[in-house]
Simulated assay, not measured.
Amino acid sequence: MTEQQLAPAAASATTPIRAEGRSSPYSPKRVIRAIGTGNLSLIGALVVIAAIFGSLNDGYLDPKNLAGIGEAVTVFGLLAVVQTVVIICGALDISVGSQAGVASVISAMAFTSTSGNAFLGILAAIGCGLVLGAVNGLIIVYGRVNPVIATLATLAAYKGIAQLISGGKAQGFVLDNDVFIFIARGKILGLPVPVIVLAVVAIAMHVLLKYTDIGRNIYAIGGNDTAARLSGININKYLIAVFVLAGAVAAIAGVILTARTGSGQPVSGSEGLELKAITAAALGGCALKGGKGTIGGTLLAVVLLGALDNGLNVVGVNTFWQNVAQGSLLVAAVVIQQRRSGERAVGLPT
């Protein structure tokens, strides 16, 4: 064989062969698949909202206003993140807003009764959240009550508890305490402390769901509880643990609420937070039947809702329209999920 004949063979032996049809790791299809079509839709909606309100008011895209949006979404963002875990497990916690209200009051009252010990106030609030979450889980598991009905009942009960122990009034005054001032207005690496807290909780929940056996079991329970039970997963323990987790995160949200307002708020600061949390989780791609959802999608939805609320305020729209917008978005999210699932719509012929 001549040198001319050997050259092409040698070249082909040293040149890496790309498999036919294999796309680059940075191809548009792979990027879209990695981000998710649902998340891309949220990003697109966020860009549209920013463009609309930015054109209507020059101050909307101001860095200070954007930072304000980030701080404003922290409380319901925490509830939305933990609601995502609850929904993925196939349940729903409608009482998270009321739990935050009870924790807010407890943190302020404990702070006052301990002569201004902020750390004891915070620990008391978190301990209260753990107990309230455990009560939800025990009612659902051992009372054999549907999670929606159980937490709808405790929504009212916990709201009543917050009003009873506070006399229906804001409790304590924490604005002269350095710890609560730091929680409300402090910054770490240029970012507000509440935003840091939300980021830490979101990362922890993401790692839990994606990289641990506990997370995989939570997805399995929400996807098919019968199969999960047959595979040896103790569903009752997981349900109780998930609701205890929800109570703890709701308590953290309550502490931030106390720090922001300067006192324990039994109802005014926490009312309606459960609707926002569920709306954000549904918009973020959580299937309300369980087994599907991501923390990243929920966070995008939280930012979207915050941007929408802020935009309506900036352009002077009546704040009552915010509730209309949230309700409409929740309906839209559920309708889209139903259409994508391919299931027969309720009440229509097959």
Score class of each variant (00 low, 15 high):
residue 154 T to N: 09
residue 150 A to C: 13
residue 116 G to P: 06
residue 149 I to S: 12
residue 148 V to A: 15
residue 117 N to H: 12
residue 123 L to V: 15
residue 141 V to C: 04
residue 142 Y to Q: 01
residue 115 S to M: 09
residue 153 A to G: 15
residue 119 F to G: 06
residue 147 P to M: 00
residue 138 L to T: 04
residue 118 A to N: 10
residue 154 T to D: 07
residue 115 S to V: 02
residue 124 A to E: 06
residue 148 V to L: 15
residue 121 G to P: 11
residue 134 A to Y: 07
residue 120 L to T: 07
residue 117 N to T: 10
residue 151 T to M: 15
residue 151 T to F: 13
residue 128 C to R: 01
residue 123 L to K: 08
residue 136 N to H: 08
residue 125 A to S: 15
residue 147 P to C: 00
residue 125 A to N: 09
residue 139 I to K: 04
residue 141 V to G: 04
residue 150 A to L: 04
residue 122 I to P: 11
residue 151 T to R: 03
residue 135 V to F: 11
residue 154 T to S: 09
residue 131 V to T: 02
residue 154 T to K: 09
residue 125 A to L: 10
residue 139 I to G: 04
residue 138 L to W: 05
residue 134 A to I: 08
residue 142 Y to E: 15
residue 149 I to H: 05
residue 114 T to K: 06
residue 124 A to C: 14
residue 131 V to F: 03
residue 127 G to S: 11
residue 126 I to K: 11
residue 126 I to Q: 09
residue 132 L to Y: 07
residue 129 G to W: 08
residue 119 F to T: 12
residue 152 L to Q: 09
residue 132 L to M: 14
residue 120 L to K: 06
residue 151 T to K: 15
residue 118 A to I: 05
residue 135 V to S: 01
residue 130 L to H: 01
residue 130 L to K: 02
residue 131 V to W: 00
residue 138 L to E: 03
residue 128 C to K: 02
residue 120 L to Y: 12
residue 149 I to V: 15
residue 145 V to I: 15
residue 122 I to C: 11
residue 127 G to D: 11
residue 146 N to S: 07
residue 153 A to Y: 13
residue 126 I to T: 11
residue 134 A to K: 03
residue 129 G to E: 10
residue 128 C to W: 01
residue 119 F to E: 07
residue 122 I to D: 11
residue 114 T to L: 11
residue 131 V to L: 09
residue 133 G to D: 06
residue 141 V to L: 02
residue 119 F to H: 11
residue 129 G to C: 07
residue 144 R to Q: 14
residue 115 S to I: 02
residue 153 A to C: 15
residue 144 R to I: 00
residue 128 C to V: 08
residue 144 R to N: 14
residue 138 L to Y: 04
residue 131 V to R: 04
residue 146 N to E: 14
residue 141 V to T: 14
residue 121 G to K: 12
residue 134 A to S: 08
residue 147 P to I: 00
residue 116 G to F: 06
residue 120 L to G: 13
residue 130 L to R: 03
residue 135 V to H: 04
residue 142 Y to A: 01
residue 133 G to I: 02
residue 131 V to P: 00
residue 114 T to E: 06
residue 145 V to P: 07
residue 141 V to D: 01
residue 144 R to S: 06
residue 142 Y to L: 15
residue 138 L to Q: 01
residue 122 I to R: 12
residue 139 I to E: 03
residue 130 L to Q: 04
residue 117 N to Q: 12
residue 144 R to H: 13
residue 150 A to M: 14
residue 130 L to Y: 03
residue 118 A to T: 01
residue 147 P to D: 01
residue 150 A to G: 13
residue 141 V to E: 03
residue 132 L to S: 05
residue 115 S to H: 09
residue 138 L to K: 04
residue 127 G to H: 06
residue 153 A to K: 13
